[in-house]
Design a protein around this nucleic acid. Sequence first.
DNA 1: AGACGTAGGTTACGGAGAGGTAAGTTACGC
DNA 2: GCGTAACTTACCTCTCCGTAACCTACGTCT
Lengths: 197, 197
Amino acid sequence: MTHAERRAQLIQVGRAVFAKHGYEPTSVEEIAREAKVSKPIVYEHFGGKEGLYAIIVDREMDSLYLRISDAIAEGSPRQRFEQAVLAFLTYVEDEPDGFAVLTRDAPMQMRGRGMPSVISDLGTRVRDIFNEQFKTLGYDAKVAPIYAHALIGMVTLVGQWWGSDPRRFKKEVVASHLAAIGWMGLRHLPQKPQRIQ
Amino acid sequence: MTHAERRAQLIQVGRAVFAKHGYEPTSVEEIAREAKVSKPIVYEHFGGKEGLYAIIVDREMDSLYLRISDAIAEGSPRQRFEQAVLAFLTYVEDEPDGFAVLTRDAPMQMRGRGMPSVISDLGTRVRDIFNEQFKTLGYDAKVAPIYAHALIGMVTLVGQWWGSDPRRFKKEVVASHLAAIGWMGLRHLPQKPQRIQ
DNA sequence: AGACGTAGGTTACGGAGAGGTAAGTTACGC
DNA sequence: GCGTAACTTACCTCTCCGTAACCTACGTCT
């Protein structure tokens, strides 16, 4: 096997193993065993466990960003919203291992702001999109991150639940319900929500 | 120190350590060290790492359930909804370590249905509440779990984000925005959401 | 043809730290 | 004085990350 082939194989195998156990409980030996190779090969290619993990997370994040970016490229706001949700679920469907890696606990060096998993970083990106929209619509842009994280949390947990048994619902059905609650929630937002009572 | 006191202390210390590192990366030795005690004491009280962890999770789940149950005990539906969200955030505020334990990766024996963390079990309980409401309102009760998990994911991720720096927003502000998007989303739900385009 | 360099790979080991346990120790009430 | 509750020291075994040293097949150049 050539260098590049082996590298690609290790990334694929590593992703599956990390998805199964999470970062800490997976051993380099198990990855090597699954790849039918000995341990030093992994170290030669990635320098160690964390190096391999970092590359896997990076690739998955890129893949997810790309899918969502494409999805919101055009259409009415309502269409973009629904397309983004659908793209997210499509990622969950196409790359269950990658999604699992992104939602499981990351190693300590990668944890930011009390968020144990990597996927919460999506919140900061979505916030930027919302900031813009909020300003033009006359809402208070300061609270945009609340809504950003709310939507990410929504699609992430539903994605995990749906992805654990995709035969329960068709992807499009889940996406339309998810888009409905999110869109309607945003659409009918009062300018200044007040606590009732 | 008496048996009960020591036990209570170990639960408290263990919760903090599990919250900091997650299940796998914490060692019994570290818990013992933080409690200024030797390792066999932990084994005497809880039988091992997993025993201590199970008790901690159980207590925290009970605590969270109790808070939310109290919150939705009375009031209009809209009030109950908002009170539930506020109760959740209050838990995040009062018990940051407990909340962190619930959101971090659980050991493999405790993972169910592809959900790595324990808190997703809330989804199944919320589903039961929704089932009832959905039927009386004429919606398709089959999709209730979608909305249940959507709401849990929403408050959980926002809770993590807000809890990592609570000074950004007052708890009541976050709760009202969260309740607004959730409530308005549910309130203006079409009977049968259709994918646009 | 035959020596040789190199890419790709293995075996074997070191050091550290994990979970868990057996045996022994202190202190205190009776 | 003695039993018991609370606790410690010391250890066993296992597994992990990471590395040093060695090996093998194959194309190439003389």
